[in-house]
Nucleic acid binder design. Structure first.
Lengths: 201, 201
DNA sequence: CTCTTGACGCAACTTCTGTTGCGAGACTGA
DNA sequence: TCAGTCTCGCAACAGAAGTTGCGTCAAGAG
């Protein structure tokens, strides 16, 4: 009984991983250039230096491919700031999020993320959980503010985070207006003031 | 020289308008059922009782069709509330927006709007202007609050509106969490408190 | 090194998407 | 009512998207 293969054994090794990275990279590239609708699997394969069947085998549908590609780019950790005051923390968080959003691809890539979620059945839910977890990561900002006595203890951290970040995504996804620093700071200060009870301007 | 036709004359009359309405209605229907990616022009035509060439002639691409359909459904006027106080106005606005978002189709239709914008070149900008104008419609809420002395005169109305509405769209587009009334009110109160300088809870 | 197994390339194929030309029916103005 | 257009339906077509079977090559274990 030599060579007993583990069922469903995957190969983490060299080529497979490289191919995966190349394809996902090419996907982001094409996405930023032509948008979700115009993205073709064949073009992605060509740029990745890979045959189209390879892509189809790993990612059965376009939304899954796009979602996977986006998930990888979104894995860059947004560090939770700790400046010692709520306003400073929220400003830092908002700036980091704004930089991530407009960093690569700009509004188009951001919109493609949502497009993928709108397109496949399971993805919808999976991406929802992903984002919810991401929002939850920032809640320590509020919890620390509560401990410092800056905000009342019945303040809901999730609401504060989502309100701060929501304004930024609104611009990126719907209006397409630029996320200039003045706006980012204004939003952070407005929300911070609402939580602490001090006027924002 | 009888019957001098005006160049580019359109026919507003009976059939043309009916066909247009049927197709756009069917588009929304299919969109809500299967999502943007799975939406097929042929299926839309079938439901509208129309041949697919008719659809292709009027709307050359899928994103244009979807954008047009969405634009029609978005034309329902969201009345600008006037309760006499900023908190009340923002609550009413947030509730109206939340109702519109989750009213029909839910998260899926909301996401399809963005998907269409991510997909076509000119649309991107056109839809951006559409949303910006929609946000601007609500600014009187803040302007009245400034006149009443509720908020300082250097408060930016657009920032307040976008922050309020942004949190709602964030849930609909990214996390997919439900827009329950508790959340909607919490957001409105938080932003209102930030603008007026009073604690939200 | 050698053997086994999984992943990829290739080509042919099927299916779906989008296009074009023409004839018939519907709308408008007189 | 009647003529002049405009729009739609139909069918045939061109091209892209996605699938399948098989041979070959790379990765990992003995």
């Amino acid at each position: 009984m030599t060579h007993v293969p583990r069922v469903g054994a995957q190969r983490p090794g060299g080529r497979a991983a490289r191919v995966r990275a190349d394809v996902l990279g090419a996907t982001i590239e094409v996405l930023d250039e032509v948008g979700y609708d115009q993205l073709g699997v064949e073009e992605v394969a060509r740029r990745a230096g890979v045959h189209k069947t390879t892509v189809y085998r790993r990612w059965p549908t376009k939304p899954e491919l796009v979602a996977d590609a986006v998930r990888v780019t979104a894995e860059v950790e947004i560090p939770v700031p700790d400046t010692g005051a709520l306003t400073g923390d929220l400003r830092a968080l908002a700036r980091a999020v704004a930089a991530t959003i407009s960093g690569g691809g700009g509004a188009r890539r951001a919109r493609s993320i949502v497009a993928a979620a709108a397109s496949a059945d399971g993805l919808d839910e999976a991406l929802g959980r992903f984002w919810a977890a991401r929002m939850a990561l920032a809640t320590p900002i509020i919890e620390r503010a509560i401990e410092r006595g800056e905000v009342p203890s019945d303040c809901d951290p999730i609401t504060v985070i989502e309100t701060t970040v929501g304004a930024l995504w609104l611009r990126a996804l719907l209006t397409g207006e630029p996320l200039d620093d003045a706006f980012v700071v204004a939003v952070a200060d407005l929300v911070s003031a609402g939580a602490t009870g001090e006027a924002s301007s």
